[in-house]
């Protein structure tokens, strides 16, 4: 079981590294917002693996907190950009 968990942790770490690379590379703020969302979700999955490995579900509270605030960043970046964009409309 610990080998399986180790492999999963390695895959998640690689996924986090890839989204981190996109976060650094950009090129726009929106690319970074999307990469940040994926990074947060990967962290939440990592917390789940940690709960199983440690045989203790207490980190799920942290996971719940992350799921509550995870999307706030990209939504605020998106709204900020739309309000500044020339020719952006107010409908929809």
């Amino acid at each position: 079981m610990s080998a399986v968990l180790g492999a999963a942790a390695a895959l998640l770490g690689l996924a986090a590294a890839l989204s981190l690379a996109r976060l650094v590379r950009g090129p726009s703020m929106l690319d970074r917002a999307v990469a940040l969302d994926v990074l947060v979700a990967t962290m939440m999955a990592g917390l789940g693996v940690e709960a199983i490995a440690a045989d203790d579900p207490w980190v799920l509270t942290t996971m719940l907190a992350l799921s509550l605030v995870g999307f706030v960043g990209s939504v605020s970046i998106a709204r900020f950009l739309v309000y500044r964009a020339p020719g952006a409309e107010e409908d929809a």
């Binding site: 999963a8 690689l14 996924a15 999955a45």
Partner: peptide, 24 residues
């Protein structure tokens, strides 16, 4: 074990797609 591995694999494919696909 199967769900953890499948989940980690799906997360990895998200990371790969994020880095490799051409536009936002």
């Amino acid at each position: 074990g199967a769900c953890v591995l499948a989940g980690a694999g799906a997360a990895l494919s998200a990371g790969l797609g994020l880095l490799r696909l051409p536009d936002l």
